[in-house]
Amino acid sequence: MTMRIKKTEEMNFYEILNVPPSASQQSIEQAYTVGKNAFEEDSLAHYGLVNQEERERTLRRIEEAFKTLSTPRKRRRYDVKILRIKSEADEDAYFRTTTEKLVIEDTDTGSRAAFWSRLKRLFKS
């Protein structure tokens, strides 16, 4: 497990609504209502913790997330997009400290060789 601390502006639409990517339309609507209530100007829930600018930014992100995730066509397109971003982000995972580790072919060759050697051993026995 890698550490995951994100600012609200770095969260994807599912994270900003605090629902899993498999969430139903009903869950998304419920999450949107809760999120909107939390960050509306007259809500007390953010009092003393979130400044005006952050509150407005988060509310805009919640609205944006709901607009996309509540429309099936837009949601499908978004899902494809975040899956791509996620795989790119994984490439940059912080534990990868040297470029040598990115030489995947060598590893593959090694594992392929090990596989054939195991297979040969199996047939011999």
């Binding site: 601390i5 809760v34 209530n37 939390a38 007390l44 829930a45 988060t58």
Partner: peptide, 15 residues
């Protein structure tokens, strides 16, 4: 509605 709203705010701002 305040309780669920605070849960939402804490999740985003207090980690």
């Amino acid at each position: 509605l305040l309780g669920p709203s605070m849960v939402n705010v804490v999740q985003k701002y207090l980690v």
